[in-house]
Design a protein around this nucleic acid. Sequence first.
DNA 1: TCCACTAACACGTTTGAATTGT
DNA 2: AACAATTCAAACGTGTTAGTGG
Length: 464
Amino acid sequence: MQAIRDLKHNFSIPPPSAMAGATDSFHQGNIRITLEDPELWKSFHEIGTEMIITKPGRRMFPHCKINISGLVPYAKYILLVDIVPEDSFRYKWNKDKWEVAGKAEPQPPYRTYLHPDSPAPGSHWMKQSVSFLKLKLTNNALDQHGHIILHSMHRYHPRFHILQADDLYSVRWSVFKTFTFPETSFTAVTAYQNTKITKLKIDNNPFAKGFRDEGMNSKRRTNRGPSDTERLAKRLNSMVRDSDQDSPPDLCRSSYEGLAEARAGCKDGVKDEPNSPWEGASDRENSHSLERDSPLGSNARDVYSSEQLVPGHNTYQPYRFPDYNKSPSPTSSSMSSSVGRSSFESRVPDIANVPEQEGKVTDLVVPQCPHPATAGVQDYAGVLNVAVAQAKPGMLGHHALYAPYSADQPLTQWSGTSSAQYSSHPHHHHHLAADYGTQAVHHGYHHANMADWSQYPLFSYSCW
DNA sequence: TCCACTAACACGTTTGAATTGT
DNA sequence: AACAATTCAAACGTGTTAGTGG
């Protein structure tokens, strides 16, 4: 609990003058991240990526793996991943298509995954690719392992955060870079719905090799003896132990290298697939369009583009669109999206010329107060809600921090730069115009009013 | 009846400790 | 004695599917 208090203090709001200076000083960097295996991600995205979520937790596939450049080699950074809702709907799989099934359920406890190498020097992050292999997704709201909790049949996308800090206790005024990749959006499911996704996963994931041989699945036991109970207990024990043990670094531990060829072949096959899994989405030109996937159309896309939302899921609530009935389906969204996302589509032809894939990035200023604030609900501002697989010296010694869900934090407080402000950054827009689908969007978000920061946490308050 | 979900399943991959070699 | 390479068993991760429950 002392750790929480310390963090709370570190993330409290500093004087406006301090903020202005710090903001300038951190803009000298040019941090870039690229998504590894972009073709694989696109292959999935074109079909409609599904991620299995289970009670004990399931890894993502494709994995979140990135390459980073532009960091100060000797400065220390913390890498975080969180997964945020794509829209405010619940979906269902109906006759080879995803359809809106209703309003989204209330957000589960918000969690952020902290890369186990954090904090590490920039040189460490840049010398090799950074994978979040051990990030797990669960649908268990009471999960004790620190996995990221999601709702089944809801759509999400991961965000990558880079924070310059010596450790979680000394987060200073720094630019909080947030990156997103449109092709990493996915639907959380408890069982695969789209058989094409299943096939793609089996073809690309070595762990699924056991299911490649036809006929083996017919072998199923009907008698489940006591040994099963023992086995289950054993597995449960191992899971508990695993959650408590230090995990080896995730850096460059990918075991899926050498799959590029199979992937390329797979992708080609997908490209020729005439049917989109999203209802009414038939325009191949929009195969990379996010709004194709969302019944919100351009509105949803605007929310997506406003990647200044470092706070938890709950901050999305006010920006959701409860009258989803007005958005008939992803079909209409596909049509209306051209206005809101013109820059995305215009850059599609340029993808081939883009050497590497970058994430959409957001700059955020992480506040820190030199003086501890008195206890109070608002004083929880900025406490990281982090799931960490491995604690380093100086880091939190806990594997998971939990946050109560609340939906009373207006997104507008964090979106001082919505699409309008976003457009005011021509440099970033250039990236958009040239590289959508492969390039990240870079948002510069700077809050003009300190009151905005003082009222809302960077991350939801956590306790354990 | 439908649908989302769970648990058990079998098997390939990964991991890391133990062993052997230099 | 120290280090590297190899071996091997346990643990892990995977999609499938029967069963469950709302």
